[in-house]
Design a protein around this nucleic acid. Structure first.
Lengths: 98, 98
DNA sequence: TGTTCATATGAACAACTGTTCATGTGAGTG
DNA sequence: CACTCACATGAACAGTTGTTCATATGAACA
């Protein structure tokens, strides 16, 4: 693991290290979802969700697809999906062990 | 994924989201290593490493074993090891794809 | 064009975080 | 005991971050 890779990985972790941002990413892991729906379903302001999505987009964790008035966001690729599913699986198991 | 699990996972990510802390955890994934050696090999102050280790310990990402004057730290369990190896593997693959 | 809906952006601020420096604790050794 | 080595802790500060409010952009539709 090179220093650059270490920094890159830390940056990804940092972005996922906010509870709201994490739930945003998890909410669009498999199915594209619009910003407004995201905000409503998570109980967050539209502005806040949009700000977070900008960061997630910049880090290529998420990608937005325009559809008329709407912009729907999904996990950027299978790496992101696999990483997060692996992590959530471990969390589930840990809770079982406690 | 319950809200509690979401928070817990975010907390883990937040801790790994600092480059120094991440390299500390990665440095003791498989082999226990003392605080001083950790500091020297990463080019960080002993105090800083110790502060970070306290946070990592509190989150049960790492565990310390006393050995005389020394305290050696290791990844807390196989979950932590597996999660991090999975993440680093994905980072490696992503770099290959670019 | 003017209006409305969905999303993005900018400024501002309180709260938090990483780091350093100084000091404390506790184990080993003379 | 006094001293040293390895580590932990506390206070303090600069820099960063999440959030809100207000406003801008941009697409659809009358």
């Amino acid at each position: 693991m090179t220093p650059d890779q270490n920094t890159e990985l830390a940056e990804i972790f940092r972005l996922l290290g906010d509870a709201n941002r994490l739930s945003i990413v998890l909410s669009c892991l498999d199915t594209p979802i619009g910003v407004g729906d995201l905000a409503k379903s998570l109980g967050l302001s539209q502005s806040l969700v949009s700000h977070h999505l900008r960061l997630l987009r910049a880090a290529r964790l998420v990608r937005g697809e325009r559809d008329g008035k709407f912009v729907r966001y999904v996990a950027a690729d299978d790496h992101v999906r696999a990483m997060l599913k692996n992590m959530t699986a471990h969390i589930d198991e840990e809770c079982g062990d406690d």
